[in-house]
Amino acid sequence: MLDIRNIVKQYADHRALDDVSMFIPKGKIFGLLGPNGAGKTSLIRIINQITAPDSGSIFFDGEPLSPKHVERIGYLPEERGLYKKMQIGEQMIYLAQLKGLSKEESKQRLKYWFERLQIESWWDKKVEDLSKGMQQKVQFVATVLHEPDLIILDEPFSGFDPVNAQIIQEEILALNKKGATIIYSTHRMESVEALCDNIALIHKSRKILDGSVRDIKEAYRNQTYTISYDPLQAGDPIPQQEELYEIIKHEQGVEQNLTIRIQEGKSLNDVLLFLIPQVQVHQIFEIIPSMHDIFIDKVTLNN
């Protein structure tokens, strides 16, 4: 869908993007991650052709990005905003028309969306009469009304209560199912695993990690497991075997919880063979690093 190659953007005293390249596959949800001030918004503005890069190029569906693509992109900026004194319906139609939709068409689609989100009664209201969360909902509709092929959402959930965040998340997934490619920019990692197929991590103007969520997590697996067990006899010591595993954590709950990292060259089976004669094993699960951990790990490493 989008092929970003070697983008450089220099502002007067700092470099916002330094040789950033990434590929955003069609029909996927792509997480654009990074701490505040990393350069996410700069990149998004370049994709939206709000600003131009100093060097580098972007290809949209194989063609060099040009103003004609504007109508195929929907953009929800992080800083939300609508005309406060304008009626909602009128305003939505205006924004859709700017994206190349006819007046009639936008009216029809708007009716559909307002019914779907059960906000029909808002049509004649002014934006200033709505709560912040309601405005966000309206703005989300404005972003997707022209059925763009590429939807760019910058922190789409900020300002939503959990119920509405859930509704919007479902809408995003539904749009993706219908074929829209979505760029989801955030610095909140919890939602990334639920939503994203692929991610790129930007830090200090550079891309420091990208790939599919599964591959990245796979790459970050490090043979860490938590084993819940009961000792065969009360008071038995914690089983130890330095050549086999290293103990990271031990917790005494209803049962014993032992977190271990298996030494290189050994497998979980080896550990089990060692443990089973000594303890009653109840459950074993692998500790896979969350995107959150990877994010923090990567960012602090690069500081």
């Binding site: 939206n48 709000i50 953009y75 905003g81 609508l82 700017l98 994206k99």
Partner: peptide, 17 residues
């Protein structure tokens, strides 16, 4: 100033120059 402080300007200039 209104458009800028409302932040709607970013939405609009993603559609027009």
């Amino acid at each position: 100033i209104e458009e800028k402080s409302n932040r709607i300007v970013e939405v609009i200039i993603s559609s027009v120059k």
